[in-house]
Design a protein around this nucleic acid. Structure first.
Lengths: 227, 227
DNA sequence: GAATCGTTTCGGGATGGCCCGAACTATGCA
DNA sequence: TGCATAGTTCGGGCCATCCCGAAACGATTC
């Protein structure tokens, strides 16, 4: 027999600035090593290790051992969802240094959000998908169906989109994070688009951050699709 | 210029067991006084006051002064959403005492969840609304439209449901909390149903908790609608 | 096997949070 | 005016957490 959920457990784990930075970095989907996370959180290796232990204990992250590295990732999409929902009510950090200013600009331009793209790039793609009839109008938190029959037009071919995979996962989901004030496309279609951008080299990762850079090829493709 | 949201701020505020209990109680929508919250969290008045100060500072709760009472409530529905999403990843409390056991059973049977009903009662109502064609099938986090034209059948009249009020708020939203493993109806329709249950005396509040009790009248109504 | 690299564990110091009782303020009521 | 009630502020004790450097550990490399 068990009672109510103890939200203090995950909340406490997320409630330290260093651990919050780590989690925010891990929202960028790919697994990060203890060392990378330590650099992101600006901590000594020993402190980093302790914080990661706390996160694992609270069930927020999982570890993959690979050689002498240990790669950490968010435990599941519910954790990602919880972090997003906290971002919606969290105050925005004050920016003091020039370095932070640049990092903030890069995040606004384009970044990954768990397994899809966000920032200005995410919004451009959302508009494109909507104009192309591949997704419905998005409302925050809403889920949408794929069009029937599945189109085979220019946009679909250019991005290499495939039909939904039949899993329970919704085709689109409106995901709001703190820039833009408009939801961007998450869900299966969002994941497909991010995968396409990665494998085709339309974006390149930036070091130690979820921000990504749109390459010249990527920008060309977008402009061509938007015209 | 401002940077990323600092999720550590709300998370830290929620990350104390006493404050978490208060927030969980406030999920029951109605505002609670400092004294009531102190009893719920089992704290001295002075500690209660400090904790509430922390919650207010983090923007999670708002205060209404009424005479010598101070009534606290969740700041907005985003906060409620964040608490719900943490409940989805939080471990369930172990139950030791008989008293906790009874409280847990009462919560499972029927409780309020921000501004709608949850627990077994919430699920019964969700099924009823679905069978009556008033809401679509629910998926967690999904939003649904009201039927057009708005029906005027037995269920609608019995519950006194009105058409959507034209606000942005979705007609239905699938809200999952920890019992039942199935989403129950939130959104405008959920709020209307709770209001009807309250004003018609189909439920009565239980002291110091979000749990409510279905009255004999309420049970009669439900059985009649379900037949 | 020795050196190296990434990571964890341990010890210890500083800090801050949590708790309470006592004193204080503000409201309501007689 | 005086007293009771609701709530906050203050002071102080205690404990958990957060940080780091030193040392240990395990895997890879030479």
């Amino acid at each position: 027999m068990s009672g109510e959920p103890e939200i203090a457990v995950p909340a406490r784990a997320m409630g330290d600035p260093a651990r919050a930075r780590m989690l925010s970095a891990l929202l960028g989907e790919r697994a990060l090593s203890s060392g990378e996370l330590g650099r992101i959180a600006r901590l000594s290796p020993s402190s980093t290790s302790e914080h990661l232990h706390v996160l694992a204990e609270a069930g927020l992250v999982l570890v993959d051992n690979q050689g002498r590295h240990r790669f950490y990732r968010l435990a599941n999409s519910d954790v990602a969802r919880a972090i997003e929902s906290l971002q919606a009510i969290a105050p925005l950090a004050r920016i003091s240094s020039l370095r932070q200013h640049r990092a903030s600009r890069e995040m606004r331009e384009a970044r990954t959000c768990y397994d899809h793209l966000a920032g200005d790039l995410g919004l451009r793609l959302t508009d494109l998908l909507h104009q192309g009839g591949i997704i419905d109008e998005l409302v925050v938190g809403s889920v949408g169906q794929a069009p029937e029959p599945f189109p085979d037009d220019h946009i679909v071919r250019a991005l290499g989109l495939r039909e939904p995979d039949g899993s329970r996962r919704p085709w689109t989901r409106g995901c709001l994070d703190w820039t833009g004030r408009r939801p961007h496309a998450a869900g299966q279609v969002g994941a497909q688009v991010l995968a396409a951008f990665r494998t085709n080299g339309w974006i390149t990762p930036r070091p130690d951050t979820r921000a990504v850079q749109l390459t010249a090829t990527g920008e060309h493709l977008l402009q061509e699709l938007e015209s």
